[in-house]
């Protein structure tokens, strides 16, 4: 009995090992096929983007059609979008890429993905839409910015900023989850790139929502847009926050103000009852 069991177990393990070898072979073959397809996609994309001027995609129907057939699957579509994002890193071609995406049917496929069941699919669609400068229905973004799924929530918040700019900032407090530093950096990048004129009132409105991570974002935005000298009252409030990360950030930013701010202009005495008053005053060197 035991011997038979041992033999069966040995057989199972052998089958598993052989299956792994087979899987390695299959994966290799699939990768080879994908690589070839990628070369074709890149070549067609290079040809299209290199030879045509803005909005001239219509003259290249045959190539567009070929590219469309190569990118009809999820993998192909994903690869094309990755390549377009790479190109956008070098060259600004918003109209051309959105027209190309439209003609390739990728825009509509991505918008359709927003309605899919899987949150991961939706999140990916959100990223791809905002990274290719396509519009996302605002009602969807409003729904997703407080979603439980971390990626969907995070990417929708970035997309909202990309579409609505500063006006979307106060709405980010809809989520009760903490905003990560990565997300804050991405939001700052979108605002500085697409909405370079700071809107102080909206920044203050967002600050007044009271959410710590949103306040961290506001403090960093104030720094990025050179608003610190006029908004030091806000930072001082942050320095006395119970949230250690917010407090540390505000103290650092206030310290960076150095010569731009005189101790007498800092209304620190209003926090004299705070338990950390002495410690924070010392750190602020006031």
């Amino acid at each position: 009995m035991t011997l038979t069991l041992l033999k069966v177990l040995i057989g199972i393990v052998c089958v598993l090992i052989i299956s792994l070898w087979a899987l390695m072979l299959i994966a290799r073959a699939l990768r080879y096929r994908d690589d070839r397809r990628h070369v074709e996609i890149r070549s067609l994309l290079g040809e299209l983007l290199g030879s045509i001027a803005t909005a001239d995609v219509s003259n290249r129907q045959a190539q567009v059609q070929e590219l469309r057939s190569l990118t009809s699957g999820v993998k192909g579509r994903r690869y094309l979008i990755d390549q377009l994002r790479l190109v956008q890193d070098y060259f600004s071609l918003p109209h051309l890429s959105s027209e190309l995406l439209d003609r390739l049917g990728i825009d509509s496929a991505l918008v359709a993905s927003l309605h899919q069941k899987g949150n991961m699919h939706r999140a990916r669609a959100v990223v791809n839409l905002y990274e290719t400068d396509s519009l996302i229905p605002e009602d969807m973004l409003d729904k997703y910015i407080a979603h439980d799924h971390i990626y969907l929530r995070r990417e929708s918040q970035i997309a909202l900023i990309k579409q609505r700019g500063w006006a979307a900032l106060p709405h980010l407090s809809a989520s009760t989850r903490r905003m990560t530093m990565w997300q804050q950096i991405r939001i700052i990048e979108k605002l500085t790139t697409y909405f370079p004129v700071a809107q102080k009132d909206l920044l203050l409105e967002a600050w007044n929502q009271g959410d710590e991570s949103l306040r961290m974002l506001c403090a960093r935005l104030a720094d990025s847009f050179d608003l610190l000298p006029e908004m030091h009252g806000m930072l001082l409030e942050g320095a006395f926050s119970d949230d250690k990360r917010l407090s540390d950030l505000c103290v650092t930013l206030l310290r960076n103000l150095d010569g731009n701010l005189q101790p007498e202009s800092m209304p620190i005495s209003i926090y004299s009852a705070h338990p950390n008053y002495i410690n924070i005053s010392k750190r602020l060197a006031l």
Binding site: T2, L3, I10, I17, W21
Partner: peptide, 26 residues
């Protein structure tokens, strides 16, 4: 029994190593 058991243990080791190599190289 002992020989089969040793073979099984050896093969199990090979299985986990093969899996790690497959995962890594993929």
């Amino acid at each position: 029994h002992a020989l089969y058991l040793m073979l099984l243990v050896y093969l199990l080791g090979c299985l986990f190593s093969t899996y790690a190599i497959a995962l890594y190289t993929f």
